[in-house]
Amino acid sequence: MFELDQAVDAWCRSIHTSAYNRNERLEELKDHLYCVVERFRTEGLSEQQAFSKATEHMGDVGMLAIEHAKNKSLRFKFCQTEENLEKWRDSTSPKSAAAMNIFISVACAIGILFSTWILEHSSYAEYAQTVMYLLIAVWFVPFSYLSAIANKERKHKKATSC
């Protein structure tokens, strides 16, 4: 048995994972979808047919995601960069991926050590160790957090595309 409300909700949520990141945008999209469904219903279509035609009218989900990507927040853009990096890792040889990982880690480590060394040779030497710990935290904590979000979104996308 076709349930219009469930279908509208599921369709909007499938867009939500790939593009929308705010509930109010989801509400706006739902209102639009209901308006189009109502129009097709007045033309004599069944709920299911009207819904199917309405989603066609909304456009290709992939194209919508590209359009919405232009409006995304910095956090979302970071997740996408992270995802692209992951795709690159998947498509490239394990050796190159490992080399890239090592390069990024070494570059960050050099940056942290260099900043600490500069501090040690300045009048703020007593803060050098604290700053080093802070920089490690700054490097590690947000990147782990954002990577976790990117992973979560990737898993969600895989689940909805199946």
Binding site: R25, L29, H32, V36, M58, G59, D60
Partner: peptide
């Protein structure tokens, strides 16, 4: 395409 309007409005 109906869905394209919203990114433009936003």
């Amino acid at each position: 395409a109906d869905g394209m309007l919203y990114p433009i409005l936003h």
